[in-house]
């Protein structure tokens, strides 16, 4: 059994938290640039230019792209033949604490949803763990902002609703979200599984890079169709009208119960933060 020092996990997670908040993905930068070409609204073009400038300032000065530095959502893939000294969950939370404190990132977590005070260090993280073969630890930190998270929804649809029902739900959810999730958005869609699992699928879909299509050609086509429908809504950058409402739509699926047809939509804002390290 391979052993990874506690501090290695802490330092890796801290760096991922900072990097995800300072450095926008190259795929997003490309999407902004293409967006400026395609956008018909002058205000929309202007907003996309501001977002490019914002990304440059954040990168150069190492300051967060957005003041909402998010809930630290961590996807942990733990190899069967590796263990972290001192406990990996504690190490991840210590990493989040270090990253958000040393990186001058905003702390946005309340200790209790009703009675709580700010925990002061952005812990605890939300950690999704899966086991994998091998002796590696793969950690993805995807800080999630509140504005876009609030526009997300799970719906227990009827099997009879079919793929057309899914499409209508996704487009309607984006329409009702309007300007709130900071468009241009990235849309994660989960189909299948159970009530709680479908939400996880939608979240996991947001880890893909712009342009990465679902491997199943059927769902790849649905992704493209949904992107076009969403961009025809006219919401535009920041909701002030325009062609570029979404940068991409990603679908993740899972087997379902014969009686159930769960669908989830998880919306990400345009910074679409996620950074990965393999230890």
């Amino acid at each position: 059994m391979r052993e990874v020092p506690y501090q290695t996990i802490v330092d890796t997670v801290a760096k991922l938290c900072m990097d995800a908040n300072y450095f926008i993905g190259d795929d997003i930068i490309q999407a902004f640039k293409q967006g400026i070409e395609k956008e018909e609204s002058e205000t929309g073009k202007d907003i996309l230019r501001q977002l490019l400038e914002n990304a440059e300032i954040a990168k150069t000065e190492k300051v967060p792209l957005c003041q909402d530095c998010g809930f630290a959502v961590v996807f942990l893939e733990l190899g069967n033949d590796v263990r972290a000294e001192g406990g990996i969950i504690k190490a991840i939370n210590d990493g989040v604490r270090k990253g958000y404190t040393d990186g001058y990132l905003r702390k946005s977590i309340l200790s209790d949803p009703v009675k709580g005070k700010n925990t002061g260090d952005n812990t605890p993280a939300i950690i999704h763990t899966t086991l994998a073969p091998g002796d590696k630890i793969k950690i993805t930190v995807a800080p999630k902002g509140g504005g876009s998270e609030n526009m997300s929804e799970v719906k227990m649809m009827k099997p009879a609703d079919g793929i057309e029902g899914v499409k209508n739900f996704v487009v309607d959810r984006v329409l009702r979200s309007s300007s709130n999730p900071c468009p241009p958005i990235v849309v994660g869609v989960g189909i299948g599984g159970t009530f709680e699992y479908v939400a996880f699928l939608a979240k996991k879909a947001l880890l893909r890079n712009i342009g990465d299509r679902n491997r199943d050609p059927f769902y790849a086509d649905v992704e493209k169709e949904l992107l076009e429908k969403i961009n025809n809504l006219g919401i535009g950058p920041q909701g002030l009208g325009g062609r570029i409402t979404a940068l991409d739509v990603f679908i993740e699926t899972h087997p379902r119960h014969i009686a159930s047809f769960p669908v989830a939509v998880n919306i990400n804002c345009h910074v679409a933060r996620h950074k990965t390290a393999i230890i």
């Binding site: 501001q50 977002l51 954040a58 792209l65 002030l240 910074v271």
Partner: peptide, 12 residues
């Protein structure tokens, strides 16, 4: 309306 997500730029 200010540009959401342009926090580093606005801080200037």
């Amino acid at each position: 309306a200010a540009t959401g997500g342009a926090g580093a730029l606005i801080a200037k």
